[in-house]
């Protein structure tokens, strides 16, 4: 078998006009096919990267437009009478979040709920947590990579930064008292560390809350989700409608 193939190759090189031996043809075909499959797999992986970095953002941008309409926004203000917060369905537009640290024009529509389907449309309100302004811990989760990456600059949040929330019931200003403070690994927690969204962070869900808090969570590292990252703060002002 080996020898035949070798002889075939020699013959073929000597007499170029003749067809190559059939065995060689088969090997070349298989090698070529495998090579093509590998190149194709590489291209598909690259396309997947394009999808996560850029493709997911298109859907999110469209969803944000729909959510803006749902809120009845006019000049950045919620104008019409939107649905009361406690009557919202999962996936509905909930309110607006503004974080000046991320830029003056940085503004996202929050959705009700934190399932994958909700979060791909924008930052989501944890269903079990209170509404903004209330005693307890109003909590939000958001993507840091892909899906419009609302929390892309999350580690840049500093203690003292203002988080502004606007809903149908008013505008609320929170000041962070714990944040990553520019450390890319700052405020890193495990994926099961749900204590950060407890009514009193770290005290379990039975503890009686006395403060009006906000907590934001996102993924860590930015391009993965082996851990989470959080920032938290306390209500310092605002006005109810």
């Amino acid at each position: 078998m080996h020898r035949k193939a070798a002889r075939g190759r020699r013959k073929a090189s000597r007499r170029k006009t003749q067809q190559p031996a059939p065995q060689r043809n088969v090997v070349a075909l298989i090698a070529g096919g495998v090579g093509e499959l590998m190149l194709t797999a590489g291209a598909v992986v690259l396309l997947f990267v394009v999808y996560t970095l850029w493709g997911t953002g298109i859907q999110t941008a469209n969803a944000q437009d729909d959510l803006r309409d749902q809120l009845g926004l006019d000049a950045g203000q919620i104008e019409k009478d939107p649905i009361p917060l406690d009557e919202l369905e999962v996936g509905d537009a909930y309110g607006i979040i503004r974080i000046p640290r991320f830029g003056e024009d940085w503004e996202w529509i929050i959705v009700q709920g934190t399932e994958d389907a909700d979060l791909k449309n924008g930052p989501g309100h944890y269903l079990d947590t209170v509404d903004p302004g209330a005693v307890g811990n109003f909590s939000i989760a958001g993507h840091r990579s892909g899906h419009g990456e609302p929390f892309a600059q999350f580690p840049e949040l500093q203690v003292g930064d203002i988080i502004e929330i606007e809903t149908a019931t008013g505008t609320y200003l929170y000041e962070l008292d714990s944040a990553p403070n520019g450390d890319p690994d700052g405020n890193r927690i495990g994926i099961r560390d749900s204590w950060v969204v407890d009514p009193v962070p770290g005290e379990g869900d039975e503890a009686e809350a006395t403060e009006r808090r906000i907590t934001l969570t996102t993924c860590w590292p930015r391009w993965g989700s082996s851990h989470r990252m959080y920032a938290t703060g306390i209500l310092i002002g605002g006005e109810e409608v």
């Binding site: 396309l47 990579s145 950060v196 969204v197 969570t217």
Partner: peptide
């Protein structure tokens, strides 16, 4: 084929591999 990948295959893969989870609990 690229369209099918973007519409069906990649969203599925993203869910299946848990590469963009941002919630705790």
């Amino acid at each position: 084929i690229v369209y099918a990948l973007f519409i069906w295959v990649f969203p599925w893969a993203e869910d299946a591999f848990n590469i963009s989870e941002v919630t705790v609990g």
